[in-house]
Design a protein around this nucleic acid. Structure first.
Lengths: 201, 201
DNA sequence: CCTCCCCCATGACAGATGTCACGGGGGAGT
DNA sequence: ACTCCCCCGTGACATCTGTCATGGGGGAGG
């Protein structure tokens, strides 16, 4: 019997996935978590074989939870389950030591299949996403550029960014200009969007 | 036996919810839809009693699908199921003729309970959300203002909005200026954000 | 040592954005 | 008929944003 940990913040979705997985004869959901920081304690307590982690969770993101779990419980296999198939998410998931990466758009049968495959030592990754992740390459943004771009979301003004990061407004504009060029965007808003999509933030 | 239609774009979530609902003895998921525009045809074909509709769907939003279903099949009860508990969503759901409004954060048991209650003629609404919806009041935006503001997301330029809506750039700026004032924002980006939060888009 | 890159800043400039005043046209309600 | 309100447009203006040139300081590596 395969022992599963299921981490997902929306309880309706979490319980629904638990119901789905329980239909499989060889799977058993022995622990659930609604927050990222509950993952490691729950895994320790219930001695799980595989952890299914959503990315968007309060407390700690699924990616950070994966990294923490990898060091705390090296034997536990990790399956990342996410709404957004962003190449950067995939890259960071692999860097965090995940064994599988699934998007919620995929048919439900893939889930149980992925659990069994990671236990056989395989890695499960959507080939289309893998190609996109490799094609995008690593982030071209420097640390400061990323910081400034990240602070530029949702109509925050230059003066506010400058104030928050203790920079002059001119410097903020320079960094934003560079970030816009590197992302191939025409605005700060577009730059934020594509940087997020590629996982550069 | 209660016959259900389940509309949700993420197939893993959709199938998981179907598995969850099938655990109930008196419920039967007889139809599924992955797009908003599949809802009415599916409801017609399978003679359903209750439709569970996600809001964020391609093709047609769950709210628009609810309105279409209300006129096409007046006897079908409608349950809106959504990730975001925005007051404006609730208001528009009620205006579209929904019988219940649930957020995915709620425990899974609420779902089956809501289905049975709407069939008894009851309405199912989170009281906290209802209060927030009433407190916010109706949208102060006119139709055009809403349209222009909606097109202004993610760094779209004035010229592009004007082109898409067949307006002059000056008119676009005027509408955006009004929308910014009415939302209490300082930018188009902030205006889009708060309008979305309040469900005015 | 020299070179490269990153960090931070300033100044100048073009273009985009936000605000205001003003006007014409049309529908709805009184 | 009169009054609102919405629609759409123009012109003018101040401010914000994005780009470019330029330069000083500092760490890493050949």
């Amino acid at each position: 019997m395969i022992r599963l940990l299921l981490a997902e913040d929306q309880s309706m979705v979490r319980e629904a996935l638990a119901a789905l997985l329980s239909l499989e004869d060889d799977l058993d959901v022995v622990a659930q978590a609604a927050r990222g920081d509950e993952v490691v304690p729950a895994a320790r307590e219930h001695d799980v074989d595989v952890a299914l982690l959503d990315i968007e969770m309060p407390g700690l993101s699924g990616l950070d939870a994966a990294a923490a779990l990898r060091t705390a419980c090296p034997g536990v296999k990790i399956v990342i389950l996410t709404t957004f198939g962003r190449p950067g998410y995939l890259r960071r998931a692999m860097e965090s030591g995940a064994d599988a990466f699934l998007v919620k758009d995929a048919p439900a049968a893939r889930l149980a299949e992925a659990v069994r495959r990671v236990l056989r030592g395989e890695r499960v990754i959507d080939p289309v996403l893998a190609a996109a992740a490799l094609a995008d390459g690593a982030s071209p943004l420097t640390a400061r550029e990323r910081e400034v771009l990240g602070a530029a979301a949702d109509g925050v003004t230059n003066a506010e960014i400058a104030d928050a990061l203790h920079l002059s407004q001119g410097t903020v504009r320079n960094y934003l200009s560079l970030a816009i060029q590197k992302t191939g965007a025409r605005n700060r808003a577009e730059a934020v969007r594509t940087a997020r999509d590629k996982g550069w933030l």
